[in-house]
Every structure is written in C-alpha cells, then in structure tokens.
Simulated scan of single mutants.
Amino acid sequence: MQKIFPFSALIFLVFFCGCGNNSQPKTNTEKDTVKEASAEISTQKNILFFGNSLTAGYGLDDPGTESFPSVIQHDLDSLKLPYKAINGGLSGETTSDGKNRISWQLRQPVDVFVLELGANDGLRGIPVAETEVNLQSIIDQVKAKYPKVKMILTGMQVPPNMGQQYSADFKKIFPRLAQKNDMQLVPFLLENVAGIRDLNQKDGIHPTAKGAKIVAHNVWTVLKTML
C-alpha cells in the first residue's frame, strides 16, 4: 500500500490540475466588452428629481414610464447620454417635509438636482416666507453634500382663489431663489398644462400621461442645456 499511495496521489494531482485549467483566458473582444461596461458605469451621472406628486406621477397608470422624470429618461436614452433619472417624488409632500427628507435622498451621488416643491404649500396657504426658507434649506443641504452639483428650480403658481396678494407673492419665490443660488429656472412647471381639461386628471391638478409629456418638455428645455 505504501508504494501505491504516491502513484495514486500523483494521478489525483494531475487530474486536479487539469480541471483547474479548463477555463480559457478572456479573448480581446470579451476584455473590451468588460472595459466598456466598466467605463459606462463609472461615467454614468445621476439626475435627482426631488418633488411631490407631480414628480412621482400620481394617478398615472404606469408612473415608471409616464411620469415626467421617466419621459426625460427616455429622451436621455434616445440621445445616448450617460445620465440616470432618479424619481425622488413623494405625493403630498410640502417643502417642510422635503427639508426633512432630502438627506436620505442625498446618500446616492447627485450630479444634477431638479427641485420641484411648493405646490402643496400653496394649496394649504402656508406662509410664503416659510415656504421660501424651507426651499432654501433644501438647496443648502444639496450644495453642502455635492458642491459641484448643477441645479434646476421649477416654478409653481397657485390659483387666484388663494388671494391675489398671496398668489403674487408665491409666484415670486422661485425666480428669487433661482437668482440667489445661481440655479436654472423652469418658469412654470405646468406651462401649457394647467387649466386644460384634456391634459389633467379628474382632480384638475395632476397631469394625465399626455400632460406629463408636456411637463417633461418644459423641464427638458432647460435641462438639456446643462448636460
């Protein structure tokens, strides 16, 4: 048995080594594919759309494809731009809620930040000064975390039944903040959508899928110049 064991062990060693060499080295084509995939991941940038139900796509059949950030993602993909549109919308959110939630969203890298909040403040009659302070707090937190981030603020308006003075003061929040913080401004997010029955859901507030495409166009007109 002592003479057979070394020979058996040798056979086992040869067999084991042979099995370990079955994997073939990657071809140049395979290596190139891996490199291209890695490069795509490393160069991809994130666009965070931070807002309320208008961003989330409330009431749409498929917010994953019909919300305005999703429509913009389609545009990005069509142009083969290395950007990922992240939908950070939450229905019912006020600027106060957003101020407390933004830190959680900033755990992921953000290259472009689109701020869409304020509509719910206006509908609830929250003091304009309070809304402005909350929006500034969100902007400050984003800048502190990502100093090189590019930023867009989407303007919003409230119906005249909130009072003419309140409506006028509310509308001025957005251009004032955009100028103060060197942000690009979408003058009115719901331009060519608000008040048009066929472009809004039954509540008269949230856009239909067709309306969301127009909203996406309103944002894209500004966003595309920054990419």
Results as ranks from 00 to 15, higher is better:
52 N>V: 04
53 S>H: 06
54 L>Q: 00
55 T>Q: 07
56 A>W: 01
56 A>M: 06
57 G>A: 02
60 L>A: 02
61 D>L: 11
61 D>Q: 10
62 D>N: 10
62 D>E: 02
63 P>V: 13
63 P>C: 14
65 T>V: 05
66 E>Q: 05
67 S>P: 01
67 S>T: 06
68 F>S: 05
68 F>R: 13
69 P>F: 14
70 S>A: 13
70 S>R: 06
72 I>C: 04
73 Q>H: 04
74 H>G: 14
75 D>K: 15
75 D>S: 10
78 S>L: 10
78 S>Q: 14
80 K>G: 14
82 P>K: 15
84 K>A: 11
87 N>G: 03
87 N>W: 13
87 N>L: 11
88 G>P: 01
88 G>F: 08
89 G>T: 04
89 G>M: 01
90 L>C: 08
94 T>H: 04
94 T>L: 04
95 T>G: 02
95 T>N: 06
97 D>H: 09
98 G>Q: 03
98 G>A: 09
99 K>G: 04
99 K>H: 07
100 N>V: 03
100 N>F: 06
100 N>Y: 08
101 R>I: 11
103 S>A: 11
104 W>F: 13
105 Q>A: 12
108 Q>S: 12
110 V>C: 08
110 V>I: 12
111 D>G: 06
112 V>N: 10
115 L>R: 13
115 L>V: 06
116 E>H: 08
116 E>D: 04
117 L>A: 06
118 G>Q: 08
119 A>W: 02
123 L>T: 10
124 R>E: 06
125 G>N: 12
125 G>S: 09
125 G>D: 09
128 V>Y: 03
128 V>L: 05
129 A>Q: 09
129 A>G: 11
129 A>T: 13
130 E>G: 02
131 T>C: 05
131 T>M: 03
132 E>P: 03
134 N>S: 03
135 L>I: 12
135 L>F: 13
